[in-house]
Design a binder for these strands. Structure first.
Lengths: 280, 280
DNA sequence: TCATTTTTGGAAATTTCATTCCAATTCGGT
DNA sequence: ACCGAATTGGAATGAAATTTCCAAAAATGA
């Protein structure tokens, strides 16, 4: 048998390893333990058990399963971790930032940090650059549409797949125009007059997206556009146009802000639809 | 009489004020409390008393002197402080959400703002939770692979499409396992032994992704896994496992952190490949 | 110095907590 | 569907910890 884990990190590894062979309730505890480590640190067996929806004795059994004499012994690991981290917590962030902020910028962790930082800044800007009335109009259109078609290629395809996923998630009819079999025109032709279309298009504005969107607009279908510039060729055709400046690092564009907007739109729509169903 | 201090900061002020009028032993306790706050948070009355060289009952009297019903009630302040300093991801996000104003939360702009805030917090957290050696190993694997296959369904499909796009963008052979025509097994079967596979899998861990990844691993293909918990069923099989806790608002999970990681991986890979080409 | 009040430390009492035991149930295999 | 094994939840037990009580000691004031 393996040694009893003596640090929280070791314990987490052990839990992950054994997770599959644990019983149902023990797995439930494992999940809770991983998710709420500091609830374990302070809580008493009774309240933790209640919070994790298991019987107190299950917690003791869980600790035993990993070799501890009882729950309390295991709990000590969680407390140690908190005490160790506590005094240096803010310090750690500062140190990490300093270490990452210097010149030699091509280690993966530094790149990750740069992206995270840049994306966070872009998100902050997003809040200021999006106008409330645009959001309202977009939600109006989507709420009124019988079905929603989503189009985007290359990088924007990621956004399109997100929309398709999210809209279906909230029980809206959504069709992803993915051009399988080269059938952009055919898929675009299937858009009904009471539908709506969401197009995402970034520089250099792929013609496939433009063609599909233009064809739809000509038939009177409202277009919601997400793009990176007011000068986007589709901007003039759109019923609503969101201009998103996403973060860029080393020539790579991030998608955090764009997806954030997509998510906000989706959930706003969910609320709206819900409200209408209750009211009507 | 003054109100009972409800935060550790208030208590410390109160202690400082009353310090001069306390009796000898109580001053001794005061000194110890100020110097070792987190010993108070976890310790039992007996061990704290021993440590501070006072009698256990003196600790209780100390707490009573500041208006608490007992030592335990005062102790809670010290625990709260520790929890606040070392918040879990979800807790920090919750705090961020509360700061943004939580009452009327259903206008689209407020939702957008909530998402942006929560995502920014999650990004900050991402920087600290990803280990450098994991990133290095992942880049090693991808750099050595002849081709990279990417799998993910539903929400994770968005991530998979991003990988496919990004890898092709940097001239790597990338295949998106999209299950078109229900051919997950067939697409998975096309993975060569010198390839690599990137799987993204979130709760509830779709069987399609698991099947494809397991089949690949059985043939000796290295698996890079992006998931939301160390308890993910694929975690044990992965050569490298990234656990990403993305932001969540109103039950909707964001993807900002996950995509940020995907992007950092992609660009790190680009640098690595470039370096190898120059060197070799 | 003596009397009174305050403070202190020991010990008991009480509450709370973790653990163990056992019966009921579920699960897995035949 | 049945049997054996494993798992689970409830109650009881035993330990530990907090609090209260009381007597002894120290401090204060006259």
């Amino acid at each position: 048998m393996n040694a009893v884990p003596q640090t929280l990190a070791d314990l987490k590894v052990a839990i992950a390893e054994q997770h599959s062979v644990l019983s149902k309730r023990l797995r439930q505890v494992a999940q809770y333990v991983m998710d709420n480590p500091n609830a374990i640190a302070f809580g008493t067996v009774a309240v933790i058990a209640k919070d994790a929806s298991v019987h107190p004795s299950t917690l003791v059994r869980f600790a035993n399963a990993f070799g501890y004499s009882g729950f309390s012994e295991m709990q000590r690991l969680f407390q140690q971790k908190l005490i160790q981290e506590s005094p240096s917590y803010t310090e750690r962030i500062r140190i990490a930032r300093e270490e990452l902020g210097d010149d030699s910028r091509d280690t993966p962790l530094q790149l990750l940090s740069q992206f995270a930082g840049a994306s966070a800044v872009a998100l902050e800007q997003l809040r200021e650059s999006i106008r409330e009335e645009d959001l309202e109009r977009a939600v109006d259109i989507l709420a009124a549409a019988e079905a929603t078609h989503v189009v985007g290629v290359r990088r924007a395809f990621v956004v399109a797949t997100y929309f398709a996923y999210a809209l279906r998630h909230i029980d809206r009819r959504a069709y992803l125009i993915d051009g399988v079999g080269g059938m952009y025109a055919e898929q675009g032709g299937a858009i009904g007059e009471r539908d709506a279309i969401i197009a995402t298009s970034f520089h250099p504005y792929a013609p496939e997206t433009q063609d599909v969107a233009k064809a739809a607009v000509e038939r009177g279908v409202p277009l919601i556009l997400i793009t990176d510039s007011q000068l986007s060729p589709l901007a003039a055709l759109a019923s609503v146009c969101f201009v998103v400046r996403d973060a860029e690092v080393h020539g790579f564009r991030a998608l955090g802000s764009t997806l954030c907007l997509a998510q906000a739109l989706s959930i706003s729509l969910a609320y709206r639809v819900d409200k209408q169903r209750v009211a009507g």
